[in-house]
Design a protein around this nucleic acid. Structure first.
Lengths: 197, 197
DNA sequence: CGATACTGTATGTGTTCGCTTACATTGTGC
DNA sequence: GCACAATGTAAGCGAACACATACAGTATCG
């Protein structure tokens, strides 16, 4: 049994590069030639790692979400004891939301969502995102109970919407950095509390 | 001066067809051949009406927003005297939000936003959308003043975010129709009032 | 060693795309 | 009715694309 396969490791080492490429170029302009060049390999090597370009795209979407979630989890480990986890996340995102531009790969995915595989991948990613946020909101509210006009599951979706519109505004230059911070902070807090205070 | 030009009329008559095509197919799959076939003309006729495919896309985006805004204005004229205009819009959108699928052309645009023309068009469209919503929120709050924790301009952006996440959920099948209605209704009202009640 | 599967390089290939060109037909103002 | 621009039809063109093939080098095992 000569030369054990390094396919798995190779896939993992190239995924960040693919994710960056799709993020910067979108799906259409991220040609297989461009992907291969950025990876420093020939095209057919990519085709030995994934069956087709769509599979590379789908893998990149999942990688990007994993990356984001790990960033948040690391943040929560680092910073302890200054408010609830949800508040820390909100403060962090008000500062840094979208600065990696990774939301662009989601936009690219949404415009390819007529494809069943892409749609299913996005559905799973959004479901995970929602579950994560829901957990944060619920534990925040348990720590500081209040009259809750806004159910936590809806609040979690609304937070996703808030992040999305913030990303859109960033992409289009429709809001200044300061206004985007204000938007995330103010609306985020109201959604988090489910009430105004 | 023989045969006056009907270019302007032709453009206007084909715009809805182009908008539908881009909406259904996205930018990439809406090939010029497909656009021409749906319009019932040859490709080069499209090229006599617009300089290139991108211009057709940009015109379609603007048409879609005009169409939506006119729908809302007609709604406000039709239904009188049952709550504020903003409340009527909210109730209407909770029922019908996104059912034309026109949001898809916005997704397509966002994934082509690295192009300056596309980005500028989207920026203008979002600015008009924000201005429209802001006007509705302000006049609603004037009619029924309340302690406002949430500034109206931020509320307007948040409403756009709410609509966007609702569209995403529709596209991906991530929420049932009933849950989407509940989301728009509950969060929408809270954003509109800038407070809970 | 030496067989063998893994890894990399170079070069097609059929198709599709955005866009163009050539040319025939039509309708209007003088 | 005739000049002439507007309108339509048909064909094609270079480039780019996703993906494939052919083959040389290489590391690992018995």
């Amino acid at each position: 049994m000569p030369r054990p396969s390094r396919i798995r490791e190779k896939r993992e080492s190239l995924l960040p590069v693919l994710a960056d490429a799709f993020t910067e170029l979108g799906y259409r302009r991220a040609t297989t030639a461009a992907l291969a060049e950025r990876c420093g390999v020939q095209e057919n090597i990519l085709y030995r790692l994934w069956p087709d370009k769509k599979a590379m795209f789908v893998a990149a979407i999942e990688y990007v979400y994993d990356f984001s979630e790990q960033t948040w989890l690391r943040l929560l480990e680092r910073r302890r004891g200054e408010g609830s986890a949800a508040q820390k996340l909100l403060a962090f995102e008000a500062e840094h939301h979208g600065e990696f531009g990774h939301y662009r790969i989601i936009f690219a995915g949404l415009s390819e969502a007529d494809d069943p595989d892409v749609r299913e991948t996005l559905r799973r990613v959004y479901a995970r995102f929602h579950r994560f946020l829901l957990g944060q909101i619920v534990s925040h509210r348990q720590a500081a109970p209040a009259p809750q006009a806004l159910p936590a599951d809806l609040a979690a979706w609304a937070v996703i919407g808030l992040g999305t519109v913030s990303n859109i505004a960033r992409e289009l230059g429709a809001l200044s950095d300061a206004d985007r911070r204000r938007l995330i902070h103010t609306v985020g807090r109201q959604l988090l509390e489910g009430d105004s205070r």
